[in-house]
Amino acid sequence: MAVSSLSLPFHFRSSPKSHTRRKFVFFAAASSDVPLLQVNDLRAKIVESNAEILRGVNLTINRGEIHAIMGKNGSGKSTFAKVLVGHPDYEVTSGSVVFKGENLLEMEPEERALEGLFMSFQSPVAIPGVSNDQFLVMAYNARRKKLGLPELGPLECFSYLMEKLQLVNMKPDFLNRNVNEGFSGGERKRNEILQLAVLGADLAILDEIDSGLDVDALRDVASAVNKILTPENSLLMITHYRRILDLLKPSHVHVMDNGKIARTGDLSMVDAIEADGYEPVSVLT
């Protein structure tokens, strides 16, 4: 089944809802509401080495959709996520990214975040000397300020933080520790989801949130994400594994290859990838 669908890349549609080929995107954009995120022919290179990593990415995400990007190592998945949040190591050379109707590429990273774009880092950096609650309160207040709400003191934030902490199944002392300092791999990932829960987002990009997690932690993380999601929020996850896809059930699965989205389908495409690897899937484009 999967194999036969792979033979028809240009006409492949896994479900009536999906419209991920470029042509469909334009139709969709024209015929329905403005997409949450629209990426057109995005090209980007590493600033230092000038190496081009993204070679024309096209992607549209509408409100309430769950997307997954898969692809072999070095195909540009994480770079794509980093370019979206404005990582200074990369320079966009051409293409456009429109987020909530605005040009995302002109915004500073913090403006993108305040606009409602959240990325969980694949390996979140440790910030010695800054405690987790201090960091969360600071970020939460930046968000409140953007929304025109009064900033809150650490004590006023406390109950709100505690509630979110339960969501990721962590103990309160988690807040007193320095941001990601001495955290295990699992704790780092949970902390990213905690930040997402505290700050909220219109589009959450989870970059390999499942790598390095044991079964229990993965279930915790997935259930927290499911609780955070609303029909208005969208999710874009980058992963190598099927397990999280089964838990979060993306409607759209993309395969990235050589800096482009080579294939788009639904969960059934994952079977083909698991069975035969990425080569046959991406080669068909």
């Binding site: 913090e110 950096v125 910030i127 000397g129 970020a139 700050l199």
Partner: peptide
């Protein structure tokens, strides 16, 4: 560290505030 600054920014905290916090945290140890 650029990566630390970006981490703050990616959570909506402007770079100037982030710098101040990071410099202070450096001495905080």
């Amino acid at each position: 560290e650029q990566s630390q600054l970006l981490y703050f920014q990616a959570r909506g905290i402007d770079s100037e505030t982030a710098r101040r916090v990071l410099i202070f945290a450096f001495g905080g140890e």
